[in-house]
Amino acid sequence: MGALADAWAWLTTGANWAGQNGVWNRLGEHLYLSAVCLALACAIALPVALYLGHIGRGGALAVNLSNGGRAVPTLAVLVLLTLTPLGKHGDLPTIIALVLFAVPPLLTNAYIGMREVDAAVVEAARGMGMSGRQLFGRVELPLAYPLIATGLRSAGVQVVATATLAAMAGGGGLGRVITAGFNTYNTPQVVAGAVLVAALALLVEGVLVAAGRLLDPVRRRTVATSAGPGTGLRTGAGAEVRTGAEAAVEPKAV
């Protein structure tokens, strides 16, 4: 466990946290890029997925996109973008790659979430005289929420991981701590950087899971009327679909 002790020594050295190549600056770059790109990806993917799910079209697109996303190596996309003229514009290749890889999990999960809403519930809502917009906002969206949250969590982890890889293609972020360590044969720095990156990824996942639970529109009612028929609609059919969809949909974050 000497490697971990050395890494700990590296992490507790104040000088390693300061300056342009220091941990604070790299962490700031990482968080900034991740947050901007996740927001951009949501702005692109969610409206498309929710609309397609509402009208019930484009399922093949949503599913193939996530399968395709899994087959394309992130490193290849980052390096290819860096070699194009876009590479001369600072962080632009990283931003494009981050958004590209965050869109599939968001799009696919939100689409499947909308499609998995029980047809009988939709029928009943229509029968009550709900308009398309009311149906979307009051029935489909709350019932699709768990999968939308799953997509967001998956995309968040993906973005953090992709931002790490960006360092291999010359971008900034915490991955730089690792690649700089490799370049100078500084193993303690490599391990310390890896610990930081892993901790950040787990933290982001934890925060997104907690936020997803807190914001769940149905959960609040679930607590009040534990196991009422309304919640059964989702936890019954939805839970099964969710585990299946997670196994099938979620691509491995780089």
Partner: peptide, 18 residues
């Protein structure tokens, strides 16, 4: 799932000393 969340660059870096 925790292992799955660790980014690959970090995973390889953590395994390197081993």
């Amino acid at each position: 799932s925790v292992l799955y969340t660790v980014p690959s660059l970090a995973m390889f870096s953590l395994l390197m000393p081993v």
